[in-house]
Amino acid sequence: MSLHSSHRTAPLAKGVLPRLGGPTFALRHRVLRLLWSLSWLAFARWTPPVFQPLRRALLSLFGARIHPTAIVRSSARIWWPGNLVMGAHASLGPGVICYNVAEIVLEDFAIVSQRAHLCTGTHDIDDPDFPLKARPIHIGRNAWIAAEAFVGPGVTAEEGSVLGARGVAFRDLKQWTVYAGNPACPKRERRRSAT
């Protein structure tokens, strides 16, 4: 399974101004997302941990590229599976918000803990139309995004990096370094993993 990012972004609506109440995304994409949301609610949201294979199959059906050992908790909220890539033993914990307007990649053994927020979308505050801007997020091998942390658009958490609980990252996290705070600042080096 290749984890190389293709920088996919959800299709935007043409010729409309969302700031004035128009839709941000194309009608076809909005319908597909509705179908996705209803499918997750009906077939996955209520499932116990033993139903991991069903959740992975449903995500794959909607376009996710997900390794057979990846873990997605039933309470995770994934905006669009087609922009999700998960490697071997990668994990999205309980209550994770995965707002993947652009692609989110979790490499092998990457962990996103409970109620963390991965957000690929923002807005151009200097443009009067306030358009959506989306940039991918990449969580490297053995990286850990701890409980209730926030990762903003365009951030790469390099291999083995850690963003501590409730930390806020708007810049890349360097490999094998522990970060904490808002904004996230480096605290110390992390011992290298054998995996």
Rank of each mutant, 00 (worst) to 15 (best):
L32G: 09
P131T: 09
E107P: 02
S75M: 10
S37R: 15
P48C: 06
L3M: 12
H29L: 01
P128G: 08
A26P: 08
A147H: 00
R77C: 04
P186R: 07
L61Q: 14
A180H: 01
N100A: 10
R192G: 08
P11A: 14
A102R: 02
W79T: 13
G21Y: 08
S161H: 01
I104K: 06
A70G: 11
V85R: 06
I71G: 11
C185G: 03
P23E: 06
Q114V: 06
T69S: 08
R28S: 14
C185V: 04
R73A: 13
P131G: 08
T195Q: 04
V50W: 15
I104N: 03
I145K: 01
E159T: 12
A147E: 07
M86E: 05
A116R: 08
S2T: 15
S39N: 07
S113A: 15
W40A: 08
Q175I: 04
A165G: 14
S161F: 08
V112K: 04
R141D: 01
A169N: 12
A44S: 14
A102L: 07
A194S: 06
K187M: 11
Q114L: 11
A57P: 00
T122L: 00
H89F: 12
V101G: 03
T120P: 00
R192P: 01
T195A: 07
V31E: 11
P186L: 14
L84C: 05
L34V: 10
A102H: 05
G82F: 03
G93P: 10
A149K: 02
L41R: 13
E158Y: 05
A70Y: 02
R45P: 03
E107D: 06
T47V: 07
G140M: 05
V112D: 04
H123C: 02
R73I: 09
F43K: 07
R77L: 09
W80A: 13
Y179F: 05
R192N: 10
D129T: 15
P23V: 10
L92K: 10
A70D: 07
E159L: 04
T177K: 08
R55Q: 12
H123R: 03
D108H: 09
F51S: 15
W80S: 14
C185L: 14
L17T: 14
V101L: 00
T122E: 09
R30K: 05
W36T: 11
W79A: 08
A26L: 08
E103Q: 14
H67P: 06
L61K: 13
T122Y: 02
Y179H: 13
P68G: 09
S6M: 04
V101R: 00
G15L: 05
I145V: 02
A149Y: 02
K187L: 15
Y99G: 02
R73G: 05
A88C: 14
F170R: 10
F43M: 13
H138Y: 05
G15S: 12
W79G: 02
R8W: 04
C98Q: 12
S193H: 15
I66M: 04
V112P: 02
D124M: 01
P186F: 00
F170K: 07
S193W: 00
L92V: 11
D108V: 12
I97W: 01
G21K: 12
T177L: 00
A42N: 04
L3P: 09
W176R: 07
L34Y: 11
T195I: 10
A149T: 01
A149V: 07
V178L: 15
V178T: 15
S60E: 09
T177F: 00
L32K: 15
A116P: 03
P49G: 11
Q114G: 10
R141L: 09
